[in-house]
């Protein structure tokens, strides 16, 4: 309910405008002036509609989760942990966020990987821990709503030819951000055109996507890039 308090300035300003306008136009010297009345009605109607919608916004939307702090807390620590974890391909660590997993079964001795767009950091590992081919998409475990909007990779396996195809990721992603207006941003010292406030100063590092392909020890892997 506290959010609705923020509507108070609208209300105050409305009351102020109404008082000032009624004071200066008092002494109803033109009680039947249709044209002035019509102008006033149109203007009042316009303000009323806008105010009503603003109230609706505050009731329905304003309780949505708001991204408060766009800087990720102990990022350096997380990065160190993550570096270590993925060097050892240890995905079972709190610094790693697993996004997707695929498992493909195969009898082939030799498989090839096709990644036409080199969109991901690709790691291949021959390990005896798996009997089939296991593909994992993962990234650093930072809590940021943008992550949810990044589309999943699409990985498929063609059993006949032994191709693991990492299909074109959706390279173009639209994100809609509802944001404060310029007058508020100015006082908060935020410029719209620096993305730091949105993704953090080290955004690119922290949002990088990785794909780990684990194949059984005896399978030979050809990486194919087009």
């Amino acid at each position: 309910m506290f959010d609705l308090m923020a509507l108070l300035p609208i209300l105050l300003f409305l009351i102020l405008v109404i008082i000032v306008v009624s004071i200066v136009s008092k002494g109803t010297y033109s009680p039947n002036n249709f044209f002035i009345r019509r102008r006033n009605v149109i203007l009042t109607g316009y303000i009323a509609v806008l105010s009503l919608v603003s109230i609706v916004y505050f009731i329905t939307v304003h309780t949505q989760a708001v991204v408060e702090n766009n800087e990720i807390g102990n990022l350096d620590e997380v990065i160190t942990d993550f570096e270590e974890a993925y060097q050892h391909h240890n995905l079972d660590h709190e610094s790693v966020k697993v996004m997707n997993e695929w498992t493909f079964s195969s009898d082939l001795e030799e498989i090839s990987i096709e990644d036409p767009f080199s969109a991901y950091q690709l790691h291949v590992e021959n390990t005896d821990q798996v009997s089939d081919i296991k593909v994992t998409q993962f990234m650093m475990n930072v809590d940021h709503p943008i992550i949810n909007l990044i589309p999943n990779a699409n990985v498929s396996f063609q059993e006949m030819s032994g191709h693991i195809l990492i299909e074109e990721p959706r390279s173009h992603v639209e994100i809609k951000v509802i944001y404060e207006e310029f007058p508020i941003r100015q006082i908060k010292d935020i410029s719209m055109f620096h993305r730091d406030h949105l993704v953090g100063k080290r955004g690119e590092e922290s949002y990088r996507q990785h794909i780990l392909i684990q194949v059984p020890e005896d399978v030979e892997v050809n990486e194919v890039s087009y």
């Binding site: 959010d3 923020a6 108070l8 300035p9 300003f13 708001v66 991204v67 709503p145 509802i178 404060e180």
Partner: peptide, 21 residues
């Protein structure tokens, strides 16, 4: 509503600033 990310919360002081500025 699901397609949006919300930055910035309109609080009472924020709204006052909005009006004044």
């Amino acid at each position: 509503i699901d397609g949006f990310i919300f930055f910035g919360e309109y609080t009472l002081p924020g709204m006052l600033i909005f009006f004044i500025i």
